[in-house]
Design a protein around this nucleic acid. Structure first.
Length: 691
DNA sequence: ACACTTGTTTTTCGTT
DNA sequence: AACGAAAAACAAGTGT
């Protein structure tokens, strides 16, 4: 019988047929392996390689008596209940039929939940009490017929199972009720439904009632599958499923647990301490009516003998009022929430703190990693290569995602970039560089911008541009046509190739020659009037969130047929050559006499450098003005010796980044506006014509 | 060639 | 809707 403390086990005979050894459960270092079979059973779904690690660790706890590495023929461990722990194929199975064909399931891309709910779940949930009983009965019978035969559970069954999920003819098997019933489990933790588990949780409490948080904790403590999913994120999925009637947990679905019980739980605010008042495993009431092996065939805690418990009856539970959940917050109380396992700070908050603490306010990626490990215990405990991959990935993700952070190219060969806090970032939240999902957000953004642009266009045309009505109408026509275009026509998100940091085949931004020792001022808390750091032109250029069309300029431009200053300019005078540029000064290199999109700048410099340069256009960039990399000889960008290249202007004075690159000759307002629109749709933030 | 690091982007799910 | 976490795909560069 499988239970928390499996009494005895035996090593599987090796290939020579000799019995290697025997052991007792006391050899295991409890409680880590108290529920080993179940734990590893879970692992089968999520990470097959973990099985070997578990066993290796277990072996370590056995003082090396289980020498897996030196005995490749040692294929399995048999527990006395028939559970088989296979070490050579990472398969964990048991004598029970339902274990036979468990197979690691392929996960869809970005599927963060470890296993897709089996298709049959939709049919089995809601599950009636009859079905629960049937399941329990079936489970029990399968247990009883355990004969300990190993061959039955070894790889040949896996092959058979594979056909179920692979290219074979799954329909025949899937449609076979017998096949389903005998060969699969409903859930990763077993055949018990959420309703069943909740029922047992409630029954386990002395008062036959639990708060939702107590149910959560019970699940974590008593169902090994959830044991490592108790943190806020890992538990999000199953916690959402637990109390929700819409997931098939309803009165008629699971009378023993009952919708009432669950809504009762749901109505209880999760404000209490998780551990407060929760019955411990040791104090759990027994499962009346069924044995623990029936309810927890995979190693659930062994309940103590019943003394006073009785099966919870549906009528024992008082149906709660279904009212809207109200979050009450005591303004005087200090928030105790800990949204993440490491504390209240988000990744971006921690990154910001790291950067703020760094000398010069800059850090390389690996330094940020190190800061996390050094300063946050949670990450320190997970600083091994194996365990750090996830949060390091998240750090990189956050650095790239948030406009709060800014990357400055480190020009040393092979050196990673400097990361600094974007001085443009406002206190508090800042917009993401990109939206969450293309599908869900793109259309909304496009629609908003189009509406706004159209409105502004109408205003322009009605107020002062009567001579350009025809062109404006063209713009409206363009916009109307645009309605039918897909997102790809505008690419409001930075494509990889348009990124300012990762251009294919060229990760180099302008070098910082001569400025390696420049002292980066701390960014935190500074206003944008602070002196610029070593931000490179490309970094600065990409801040397209300041675009604003000056009304008078814009009108003049339009009146003259040239959209000379479509970008916000603050008409700064060129600073003294020996003065550190101010950040805003660097920002305005995107103005009419500079580029906004470094990629396009690059394009221009390489493919359109022959474009005539208006004599009136003065290059604001020179080595003294942009000491942090404006003189990129490699890319020939911002080369002070070649002002033509530094002029991101088409023949009509239109900034190239606002122009479709192949329309240099055009001075048509239609093109101008189209370019503006396109640019805006490519920019991260909203369009502001300020008309 | 391969492993690893760095960086970008997308997706999913849960929370606010 | 925006945000955050987690996971993942992918690309490019570097080191061995």
């Amino acid at each position: 019988m499988m239970c928390a403390e499996f009494e005895r086990g035996a090593y599987m005979p090796n290939s020579s047929g000799e019995q290697v050894s025997t052991y007792t459960a006391s050899d295991f270092d409890l409680p880590t392996y108290q529920n080993l079979p179940v734990v590893t059973d879970d692992v089968v779904f999520s990470n097959p390689s973990f099985m070997s690690n578990e066993i290796e660790q277990m072996n370590s706890n056995l003082n090396g008596r289980l020498n897996l590495t030196d005995d490749p023929n040692l294929s399995s461990i048999i527990l006395n209940d028939g559970m088989v722990l296979s070490t050579n194929n990472n398969l964990v199975t048991s004598s029970k039929d339902e274990f036979v064909n468990i197979e690691p399931m392929a996960r869809d891309r970005c599927n963060t939940w470890p296993m897709r709910r089996p298709a049959e779940m939709n049919q089995t949930l809601p599950m009636s009490q009859d079905k629960i009983d049937e399941e329990i009965s079936s489970s029990n019978s399968s247990l009883q017929k355990d004969d300990g035969s190993l061959d039955e559970y070894m790889p040949q069954h896996r092959v058979r199972r594979q056909s179920l999920y692979s290219q074979g003819s799954p329909e025949s098997e899937i449609d076979d009720p017998a096949c389903k019933k005998s060969n699969s489990r409903r859930n990763a933790w077993g055949n018990m439904s959420y309703a069943d588990l909740i029922t047992q949780a409630i029954l386990s409490s002395p008062e036959k009632r639990l708060t939702l948080s107590q149910v959560y904790e019970w699940m974590v403590q008593n169902v090994p599958y959830f044991r490592d999913k108790g943190d806020s994120n890992s538990s999000a999925g199953w916690k959402a499923l637990v109390p929700c009637p819409s997931h098939g947990l309803s009165v008629q679905d699971a009378p023993s647990s009952s919708y009432q019980s669950m809504t009762s739980i749901s109505s209880s605010m999760c404000t209490g301490s998780l551990s407060h008042g929760l019955p411990s495993v040791a104090s759990l009431d027994p499962w009346v009516s069924t044995s623990e092996s029936q309810l927890f065939p995979y190693g659930y805690p062994h309940p103590q003998p019943s003394t006073s418990g009785s099966m919870l009856q549906i009528h024992d539970l008082v149906p709660p009022l279904r009212k809207k959940r109200i979050r009450r917050r005591n303004p005087d109380s200090i928030p105790q929430k800990k949204p993440n396992p490491w504390g209240e700070d988000s990744y971006s908050d921690l990154i910001a703190k790291a950067l703020e603490s760094a000398p010069g306010g800059r850090m390389k990626l690996n330094e940020i990693y190190q800061w996390f490990s050094d300063n946050v215990p949670y990450f320190k405990e997970r600083s091994s290569q194996e365990h750090a991959a996830g949060w390091k990935n998240s750090i990189r993700h956050n650095l790239s995602l948030h406009s709060r952070f800014m990357r400055i190219q480190n020009e040393g060969a092979g050196k990673s970039s400097w990361w600094v806090i974007n001085p443009d970032a406002k206190p508090g939240r800042n917009p993401r560089r990109r939206s969450a999902t293309m599908e869900t957000t793109t259309k909304t953004i496009l629609d908003k911008k189009r509406r706004g642009v159209r409105k502004r266009m109408d205003m322009v045309n009605e107020s002062s541009l009567s001579s350009l009505n025809e062109s404006a109408q063209s713009q409206r026509d363009f916009l109307d046509r645009d309605e039918g275009l897909g997102a790809s026509d505008y690419e409001p998100f930075r494509s990889r190739t348009q990124s300012n940091v990762s251009m294919p085949g060229q990760r180099m931004t302008p070098p910082m020659e001569g400025f390696e020792d420049y002292k980066f001022p701390p960014w935190s808390g500074q206003q944008i009037s602070q002196p610029a750091s070593g931000a490179t032109i490309n970094d600065l250029l990409d801040r397209t969130d300041q675009i604003r069309l000056d009304t008078e300029e814009f009108r003049q431009m339009r009146a003259s047929g040239q959209l000379v200053h479509p970008v916000k300019t603050e008409q700064k005078n060129e600073p003294p050559s020996n003065q550190q540029p101010f950040y805003q000064e660097l920002c305005v290199v995107r103005g009419p006499d500079n580029l906004q999109n470094p990629l396009l700048c690059n394009q221009f410099s390489m493919s359109a450098s022959s474009a005539p340069k208006p004599a009136s256009m003065q290059c604001a960039s020179n080595a003294s003005f942009y000491p942090y990399g404006v003189h990129n000889s490699q890319n020939r960008l911002w080369n002070s010796t070649n002002p033509v290249n530094s002029m991101a202007l088409n023949s009509n004075g239109l900034p190239i980044d606002l122009e479709n690159v192949n329309t240099f000759e055009s001075s048509n307002l239609d093109y101008d506006m189209e370019a503006v629109l396109r640019h805006e749709l490519n920019s991260a933030n909203g369009l502001s014509f300020d008309l």
